[in-house]
Simulated scan of single mutants.
Amino acid sequence: MDRKWIKLTSISGRGVRSFSLLFLKPSLYAVVSVNGLQKQTTSPDPTGGENPVWFNPVRLDLDGVDAPDQDLVLEFDLMASGSLLIGGDWLVGKVSVPVGDLLTEGGDGSVRHVSYQVTAPDGKPNGVLSFSYKFNLPPLPRGMDLAVTSPPPAAYYPPPEATSAFYPPPPPVAVGYYPPTQTPGHVAYYPPIPPEDVACYPPLPPPVDPAACCYPPPPAVRDPYSYLPENWDRRSYR
């Protein structure tokens, strides 16, 4: 039967101090486990510096831990190799990584590379731990993926015919807020436009008669001889 496991490779540290009082450079190694179980230890880094590299691949069986995936924690204990003169090996840092976070990125079985901060025993930062990982996830039984990924629609959404009883029904569409136009069944929002034969301004005044003037007409020019008697003889005045 195929099992679920995680494989770690390219485990390394950067800036991890060992806090040695004798100014020594002890070799560092890592103890890897899941929820404190299935502990596996890498070989000590031969350089003895603050940037250890461990080439040992680590494989942990996730089915061997009686806990759901969201409760699994991948734990790293970074240890310094010491002698009996200084009290043996001691802890220089810890890293705890939720397995659920790793599944979010690498649940498709691809190789992923991540980095996490190392915490010293006094709670202060002590460098960075990096590693690559890959999951082996057995396929789900036939029909199990459909049962999990395709729940019945009615379990999460109300039926389509359900109506709300907390609000009154909307008003009829035919109701308008302004008087309607001449077109029946049309909702108008502004008054209708006046017909074209209706003028928007008063009619123009009739044309002014040129004979009519604002001043009285001049007196008629009369013949100067019109004042003489009718039987006068114009030759007698010559």
Rank of each mutant, 00 (worst) to 15 (best):
I193A: 02
N136S: 14
P172L: 08
L137G: 00
P216C: 11
C213A: 04
Y227I: 15
L146N: 15
V148L: 15
Y227G: 13
Y215R: 08
A162Q: 15
C200H: 06
A155E: 06
E196Y: 06
V198M: 11
D209Q: 05
N136D: 14
P192E: 05
R142K: 12
A154S: 13
P169M: 08
D233A: 01
Y189E: 08
E196P: 02
Y167H: 11
L204Q: 04
Y133D: 00
A211F: 02
Y156R: 03
D197S: 10
K134M: 15
D209A: 14
Y167L: 13
D233I: 03
P207A: 14
A155S: 15
P153N: 08
P180N: 14
P151R: 09
P168C: 01
D223K: 00
A147Q: 10
V198T: 13
R234A: 11
P194T: 09
D145L: 14
F166T: 01
P219F: 05
K134L: 09
P216G: 07
P151F: 05
P152Q: 03
Y190L: 09
D145K: 14
L140K: 12
Y133I: 08
T149G: 14
Y177I: 00
P153T: 08
L146S: 15
K134V: 10
R142Q: 14
L146V: 00
Y225C: 01
P202T: 03
P138G: 11
P152K: 05
P184S: 12
P229Y: 06
